[in-house]
Design a protein around this nucleic acid. Structure first.
Length: 741
DNA sequence: CATTCGCGGTGA
DNA sequence: CACCGCGAATGC
């Protein structure tokens, strides 16, 4: 099977043999020219002897395909998409074979492939094109993106016998030519397709084939959304609507409803003969979706599976054995054949932001992918990000929101308890510093089931302030002024910088002698609440130990945002302590992020249950929570970004590195018209304490959105100059960082 | 990053 | 006039 992926391109080249770039010496005939192949050299393959290879190198100026000769001995194995090993700049390097060709543009003599690692075509044409697009968007290299997109090979797994061919569920969206994973034979020429009109809620009634009762039940999960059923119908009909979905809150015996709605959309897509990818923030959500999808053919891919099982499932997707991949952000690249739908849930969760170069965001990857592949997209969440809101504003996607009366019926009753709230009289409650409103809500809730207390993540940790004037409590030791904190089990506060115990602390501002915790860490909150409700079980769930679910029995659940256990039947009440930590922060997304966390917790309540948020009711994010109106809030945020000239209305890149390097790069980069440079400003390094001259600086470059691609290109060029010269002082380039400020 | 290439300087 | 050395260019 040596047929190249893009037959048209092949014929075009064959049609102009003589004027064509260069014929390959060996291919023309083994007549043994003067400088011909050395005597030990292998014979090139008779057909399409040129292999275009993406070489695995981090160097930006080498980010393009290189041509090699395919030895006749490797002819059969050297298929488009396979992993190869080549000699590059002297040493052996890994790479992917993009395509086979008759000719080369290269002036010099071509080297032979060193070997084909395996004939498995792991890089499909679609994913290769996507990786290129993502690299261009983020000023990165294709090989960096491929490292994120294609899992490391596991030879043993690859060699395992394939499952019996016709297993009824398989053979879903296999391309006409067989399951060689090469997408739908769409040509890999550059440029995104114009994209179809957003059809969420467009055309009526699609044929509901592929099931009887199933699709009725599925439709039920979207009935509360006016445009929901036509969205499903469009998917089933083979069309590609794009929607930003504001999921209705409320958790009942079946758990939260969003996984059912997602499963319904996936099954509708399957009914049209196409596949789907579903990207979720963490393993807990993947497990949930996995369970709800049930016998719908799919695989769940998460990091905790281990390399072998992970690769095994990924291969099933590649080989077309399953049409649906569910997983965390890497799943955005899952090589689903004939993609019909891309789903992302809770796109505001920062777990969707890739931590490896070039730092792509899963929502952007999926949007690019859906656009290029002509697939539908579903961006869902309880809250609404400004980025998703912009996609609506630009006309790329349509809103998918619940009927107002459904919102009212399912949302919890949220009551704010601001700073001036009356503190609980109860001695125990006083110790927890809970307003009486919150205290009573927990009490009442505990009569009916589990209650949730959402506390700030660690890291937002116990900072102490003067109880009187709220000034930050600082270490009184000469010249230190470090922040004070409490350790569990110790009564006296200690300094987080010098470690001294602050026995007789006195406020520098007002002379007060008592401290209060401005933000309390989860461990401590759990301890205190345990004392306050002595007869109740206290469970904690946080970063290090996440509790996925919790039973229906009364219990006090203390959890950090994102780690809230899904309760059997919904929480009976909740208190949200997290807001105080967030709302005061300087980040651009502080309000949006606070609202997102609150909504994610509050959505786990039973309809009508009581939630108390410890924040002032005048704050817009609090009002949005009370009215359960994420849309208006996000639109307002988008308006503010537009005014300030911040992403996603503009495009921004940050350059971080040693001052001299940052300045040098700024000087050499050829910025597109309309670019604005802010800074550079000093930024605290990875570790506080500034011991070395390792001080870092950060500059920000801002351009109109339309110049985004030009900016990325310019930055890549400039970083190429740098890294080629001196590897040492690296400037890290980030396009559209989560929070540029 | 590793290697090669080419120009200018240097020494016999 | 041959050779050495270092900076720039290149990597198939």
């Amino acid at each position: 099977m040596t047929v190249p992926t893009s037959p048209e391109g092949q014929e075009a080249l064959l049609a102009m043999p003589e004027r064509g770039p260069r014929r390959i010496a060996g291919a023309a005939g083994p007549t043994g020219r003067k400088p011909g192949p050395a005597k030990g050299a292998p014979e090139p393959a008779a057909q399409a002897p040129v292999a275009r290879v993406v070489v695995d190198t981090p160097l930006p100026h080498l980010d393009r395909p290189f041509d090699y000769l395919v030895p006749a001995s490797m002819d059969a194995d050297a298929v488009p998409g396979c992993r190869v090993r080549v000699r590059f700049a002297g040493k052996l390097t890994d790479g992917f074979l993009l395509e086979r060709a008759e000719n080369t543009d290269h002036e010099g003599r071509l080297a032979f492939l060193e070997r084909v690692i395996s004939p498995e075509p792991v890089l499909t044409a679609e994913i290769a094109g996507l990786a290129r697009a993502v690299a261009d968007r983020y000023a990165g290299t294709m090989s960096d993106v491929l490292r994120l997109a294609v899992p490391p090979r596991h030879a043993k797994v690859e060699a395992e016998p394939r499952p019996p061919q016709e297993s009824a569920t398989s053979a879903q969206g296999a391309a006409p030519g067989g399951a060689d994973g090469g997408g739908t034979g769409r040509s890999e020429t550059e440029g995104a397709k114009p994209g179809r009109s957003p059809a969420a809620g467009a055309g009526p009634g699609g044929a509901d084939r592929g099931g009887t009762g199933r699709s009725d039940v599925d439709a039920g999960h979207w009935r509360a959304y006016p445009a929901g059923e036509s969205f499903l119908a469009a998917l089933a009909d083979g069309r590609s609507p794009r929607a930003v979905w504001s999921a209705l809150p409320g958790t009942d015996r079946d758990g939260p409803s969003w996984p059912y709605a997602v499963a319904a959309a996936v099954r509708a897509t399957l009914a049209s003969g196409r596949g789907a990818v579903v990207v979720l923030p963490d393993g807990k959500d993947v497990a949930l979706a996995d369970r709800v999808l049930g016998d719908t053919p799919h695989v769940a891919i998460t990091a905790d599976l281990g390399p072998a099982e992970r690769y095994r499932r990924w291969l099933r997707v590649l080989r077309g054995e399953v049409p649906v991949a569910v997983g965390t952000k890497a799943a955005a690249f899952a090589p689903v054949a004939d993609l019909g739908l891309a789903v992302i849930w809770d796109d505001g969760d920062d777990l969707h932001d890739e931590q490896h170069a070039p730092y792509p965001h899963a929502r952007e990857v999926l949007a690019l992918r859906a656009h290029r592949a002509g697939a539908a997209m579903l961006i869902g969440g309880y809250a609404r990000t400004v980025e998703a809101t912009r996609l609506i504003a630009s006309g790329w996607a349509r809103p998918l929101v619940g009927r107002r009366e459904e919102v009212r019926a399912r949302a919890p009753r949220v009551r704010p308890a601001g700073d001036d709230a009356e503190m609980a009289r109860d001695e125990a409650a006083r110790a927890v510093r809970l307003p009486s409103l919150a205290w009573r809500a927990l009490r009442r809730g505990l009569e009916h089931g589990p209650v949730l207390v959402q506390v700030p993540r660690r890291g937002y940790l116990p900072v102490l302030a003067c109880q009187n004037c709220r000034a930050l409590a600082r270490c009184g030791h000469a010249g230190c002024s470090g922040p004070l904190a409490l350790r569990s089990g110790h009564a006296a506060p200690y300094c987080r910088w010098c470690g001294r115990i602050a026995g007789d602390w006195r406020c520098g501002a007002c002379g007060g002698r008592r401290v209060r915790a401005v933000v309390t860490g989860s461990r401590r909150t759990a301890e205190e609440l345990g004392r306050a409700f002595p007869s109740v079980t206290v469970r904690t769930s946080g970063r290090d130990e996440v509790l996925a679910t919790i039973g229906a029995a009364p219990a006090l659940v203390v959890a950090t945002p994102g780690a809230e256990p899904v309760p059997d039947g919904g929480y009976a009440a909740a208190v949200l302590l997290d807001g105080w930590a967030l709302l005061g922060r300087p980040e651009l997304r502080a309000a949006e992020e606070a609202l997102r966390r609150w909504m994610n917790a509050a959505a786990l309540l039973r309809p009508g249950a009581e939630a108390v948020v410890l924040a002032d009711s005048s704050v817009p994010a609090v009002q949005a929570l009370v009215r359960w109106d994420p849309v208006t809030h996000a639109e307002r945020e988008l308006g503010e970004r537009a005014e300030l000239g911040f992403p996603p209305v503009t495009r921004v890149a940050t350059l971080t590195g040693p001052p001299s390097a940052v300045r040098e790069m700024l000087a050499s980069v050829e910025l597109p018209a309309g670019a604005q440079v802010l800074g550079p400003v000093p930024v605290e390094g990875p570790r506080s304490g500034g011991d070395r001259e390792s001080e870092l600086e950060r500059a920000m470059i801002r351009v109109p959105r339309a110049q985004g691609a030009a900016l990325a290109r310019a930055l890549k060029g400039a970083s190429g100059v740098r890294s080629a010269r001196k590897a040492a002082d690296l400037v890290r380039v980030r396009v559209d960082p989560l929070d540029p400020v």
